[in-house]
Nucleic acid binder design. Structure first.
Lengths: 351, 351
DNA sequence: CTGTTAGCGCCTTCAC
DNA sequence: GTGAAGGCGCTAACAG
């Protein structure tokens, strides 16, 4: 029974010929609109069966061409290597499918050239909407989408080129800083020991987090140390270097550390792994973003989690009532919790 | 300058009209084939400029329809939450782009119904090839691809429905078991203490790993303990339960543990975190798959890494010389190394 | 050197 | 109830 016809897929013409009916009849039956056109039940059955027998599969390109609707939903992100982006991709796929769209997500490696070319390809595929996450500068992408009349939404960073949905970085930073300050005080340490490490100066998320960090101090009528904020970049190596510098200057590590990304946190872990336990045992640590294993390291670490479900849901909502001229910014709360709570959540995620 | 025409994208007709030339001229110019047809330089420039001005963007659906080539490459996988799948996705995207294809990867959550529907959607989009990873049973998917005349390749599991490329699970298991046995002996412990935990009986990867595990023992003229292999499933909760049972029966944990997945390893970490350090401090642990943070837990753990680059490269090679009747299986070596080596590799991955 | 034309596979009005 | 016809945007002959 091996069908030896891999060359050409069967079309509605084939099945029209096979059933002795016309293409429009076949089309109607296949689209379920046949009841409205009172096509004979029997004809419909014949068509359906023939379609199955011929291994028919709609050509969405042709349909899309005709209907000028592709049924595609696009998303670009830098990579899948942290919980935030992996979660965004996952959730996007689920929600897109629920809406009858075919999700197509592409990683760009934070390379602006790739970002552009991917966007253009997606546009050329006629995606019906595009979500953009983790891009340094979304403006050129938004612009191309606008020119093509395709709604684009920026995730996790606001842009002037399109509506965006962002997490509440400032509020989250405020909350986690509060926790760390309390822990520090409980240890009898000075609030001035608390340091915010990592991120990029001028970048939206970093700036918001710095503001939240300061908010927490201000609420207590105090100020962070003059050198409390070091936006040394997001990666592990940079964090290691920054920590080494502090250690050299201070003769030890600061008592409290708020790391601006899971990769910066990784740098901390790498750095301390070269040190005796006494050097870091009682550190008070916080981190933006999270990782299931990080919860089990020998640190007292509080991790912040972004609500990817809410972010994607808001983004879809924005496309539903898309205003090409609108520059709205929707803010979604961040959540944080004890490390074991986070670990629990991981577990259920992976059945 | 806000273009208020989001409704209709411009087509080659628009630009033909604008430049007073014909659609074929425009098409040739836009496709770069115009030199071959000796179209006047000046005309070409005029077309190009007009295209830019009108914000023209090819409709790949129409082109695909005409050429019956979509330029799309598809991949399905369960999720992005471990290094293996995230790496596969990443590498696939890179290599697909290098070949001038637009990668489209979709997560299925290991839900067979989703797997089927995603495959059909991808086929309907006329992907030119489909890579299938982490599916319980690829046969129905392969079948649908074959019916549509689309090459499909199974990754990491062989199927009788299509060619496949798998990692050398048996060889890897053999190698890592050797390492663990040596460590155990160095501690003066019995090889019979070594346990292989996790995975699914009858599943290809699990079975190969069990075979490799036994190989390592056989090479030394010994045999694992009768209850050394416990294929309790892949998830953390199952591993926790299995460990609890061992602990109850033995009064302590076995001295050597080879975990069959990163999630099972997570179960081990969760379980030991409820125990005093003496209970696990000197455990000898190995793990299939890896995680940057896992390398920094308080365990002596050896992790196995699958070569995603090689897997994807082999898969593309198989599609190049695709034999629809072929059932070839390409085996790619696994690598493993000290935990710090792995950590190093992570770091460079994330710049 | 450039324009005309005929589809690619599908859907939808409009006759019959 | 069903068939014929037009066209979505593009490309590749084939004529000029």
């Amino acid at each position: 029974m091996a069908s030896h016809k891999p060359a050409r897929k069967s079309t509605i013409y084939d099945i029209a010929r096979a059933t002795g009916s016309s293409t429009s009849t076949v089309s109607m039956v296949l689209n379920g609109t046949w009841t409205r056109y009172r096509i004979k039940e029997e004809t419909a059955q014949r068509v359906l069966e023939s379609a199955r027998k011929l291994g028919y599969n709609v050509n969405l390109k042709a349909r899309g061409l005709r209907l000028s609707r592709s049924g595609l939903a696009g998303m670009v992100l830098p990579h899948y290597r942290n919980r935030f982006f992996a979660g965004l991709a996952q959730t996007f796929e689920d929600q897109a499918r629920n809406r009858g769209l075919c999700p197509i997500v592409v990683g760009t490696q934070r390379d602006p050239a790739v970002e552009i070319s991917v966007t253009e390809t997606l546009l050329a595929q006629r995606v019906e909407l595009l979500f953009i996450a983790g891009v340094r500068n979304p403006a050129p992408l938004n612009e191309r989408c606008a020119a093509a009349g395709v709604p684009s939404i920026n995730l996790d960073l606001p842009g002037d080129g399109a509506p965006s949905v962002v997490s509440d970085n400032r509020g989250g930073a405020r909350a986690i800083t509060d926790v760390l300050l309390d822990k520090l005080l409980a240890q009898g340490k000075s609030p001035h020991e608390l340091v915010l490490l990592g991120g990029i100066p001028g970048e939206y998320a970093t700036d918001s987090r710095i503001a939240g960090f300061r908010d927490a101090f201000a609420a207590r009528g105090i100020e962070p140390a003059a050198d409390a904020v070091d936006s040394c970049g997001y990666n592990a190596a940079a964090a290691r270097r920054a920590l080494a510098a502090r250690q050299a200057a201070l003769g030890r590590l600061p008592a409290g550390l708020l790391m601006n990304s899971i990769t910066a946190f990784e740098g901390l872990v790498q750095f301390t792994s070269t040190l005796p336990a006494e050097a870091w045992r009682s550190l008070v640590v916080g981190c933006f973003d999270w990782d299931p294993f990080a919860a089990h390291l020998s640190f007292d670490v509080t991790m912040l989690r972004q609500d990817v479900e809410a972010i994607i849901a808001e983004a879809f909502a924005l496309t539903d009532a898309y205003d090409p001229a609108g520059r709205s910014v929707v803010v979604v709360p961040t959540r944080f919790g004890a490390i074991f709570e986070e670990a629990e959540q991981t577990r259920e995620f992976d059945r």
